[in-house]
């Protein structure tokens, strides 16, 4: 089936099998390997991307369901010259160790800050309930998101 998507601002048209999962479409067809495959059972959140502005687990959607949609992956959030405040927060606050969960964490956090720009620590934890990290113990991830919220909220951001 032919699908059209806009990934990180770029329009694409691809012929895909209906059973192709969105995460495989992003990684294997579009070549964007920043989105990770973790548990593949909708639990770990490593494959989180934004579909039409909403955080989704790309292992639990077929690519055909995203036909006509806009997708944002970790690759579009910032670049080496200018990190997104969330990426900067994870860097500054040591929000990662192995880094496998990080792309999903950052996109889930992006969603959280869109809906609630000044979350409390408890709200940050609730906002990340769909993302698992096996290294950090979450403490530094929460701090990283607090850093980003503050930076985004400050006038010189």
């Amino acid at each position: 089936m032919k699908i059209q998507t806009k990934i990180n601002g770029h329009l694409r048209e691809d012929e895909v099998e209906p059973r192709l999962l969105l995460v495989h479409y992003l990684r294997d067809v579009a070549g964007l390997t920043g989105t990770h495959i973790g548990c593949e059972t909708s639990l770990c959140g490593a494959c989180t991307v934004l579909l039409n502005g909403e955080a989704v687990k790309s292992c639990t959607l077929f690519a055909v369901q995203a036909d006509g949609g806009e997708i944002t992956t970790i690759e579009a959030l910032g670049n080496h010259e200018k990190l997104h405040p969330l990426q900067e927060g994870f860097w500054e606050e040591h929000g990662l160790q192995c880094g496998f969960c990080t792309p999903g964490m950052i996109l889930a956090a992006y969603q959280l800050l869109c809906r609630n720009p000044h979350p409390s620590r408890e709200e940050i934890r609730k906002g990340l309930e769909g993302n698992l990290c096996r290294c950090t113990g979450y403490q530094h991830i929460v701090k990283a998101i607090e850093y980003a919220a503050q930076k985004i909220g400050s006038p010189d951001a």
Partner: peptide
């Protein structure tokens, strides 16, 4: 129900 991502879809 589930988590943020699950509730979105």
């Amino acid at each position: 129900i589930g988590d943020v991502q699950v509730r979105n879809k």
